[in-house]
Amino acid sequence: MVQILIRRTGYALATLFFVSIICFIIIQLPPGDYADAYAAKRHAGGEIIRAEEVEAIRHQLGLDRPMYIQYLNWMWGVVRGELGMSLEYKRPVSEVIAERLPLTLILAFSTMVFIYSVALSIGILSAVRQYSAADHFFTVIGYIGLATPNFLLALLLMYASHKWFGQSVGGLFSPQFQDAPWSWARLMDMLSHLWVPVVVLGTAGTAFQIRTMRAVLLDELNKMYVIAARSTGLSEFRMLMKYPVRIALNPIVSTLGWELTRVISGAPIVGVVLSLPDTGPLFLKSLLDQDTYLAGAMILIYCTLVIAGTFISDVLLIILDPRIRYERLT
């Protein structure tokens, strides 16, 4: 078990390393660099900028050095916890991100909790009561959920929350709490806004996981061990939870990392549409500005979250299914 964990951690770190290289390359891919983007912006403002000036900025920021040197410098900083300076904000990247990252984490975490708590209970209900009215109802809702684009759902929910709940549109806070320090009231206010992005981000995933749970559980319910467990006199509920549901959790858990990926990659767009004060809008802007270090750090953080999610789902799976433990050991 410990051996497997160590090996998995190794894989995760190796993946992270490769991902960091790819991140860096991707950021550098668009033609030009921050110096060009800066010049273009000043130019658009009516100023005249000479080529030497651009070159000077480039040199000052170290953007003229070979790519691998830039990468190594960046990585060396990352390892020590320094993410470099944001070229646009002229502040440390870590500072810029720190303001917004907690909200992203809260949003991602809440969405995951939403997806799995709703999907598991409805999935189980649908399978156990196959072809019942409830099953048909959730099947229809599920297909609608899968087929509705996030932005449309976002607009609908914004309208609903404004019209029926009298909430301000967009954002995560009511105006009076916008810049207030953290307090109980502010937390409550945030939670009352949080459901909109959570539902927007989570609906497709929930619908998908309901289908998965239902299909897998229906399969498991026909297995011999279910009737064998019933024949021991176990109550139906305990039998369901301990036997078929437990097995049906495997495919659910193994897609945890992948679901988190979907949530995290969906989050920036939802963040922009709903103008949330999380990392989403910041990320988009950093890409437009070619703010190398900021964008790099953000991609790296997103990737780390995904890799961590996958790692957790792997570990959970090993804990859940002794057959995997057994295979890996022998």
Binding site: K223, M224, Y225, A228, I247, L320, P322
Partner: peptide, 15 residues
């Protein structure tokens, strides 16, 4: 009433 079944391979939960 105790029962045993045809398929011993799948009559126990694997987990």
């Amino acid at each position: 009433i105790g029962m045993i079944f045809q398929e011993p391979m799948s009559s126990f939960s694997p987990v």
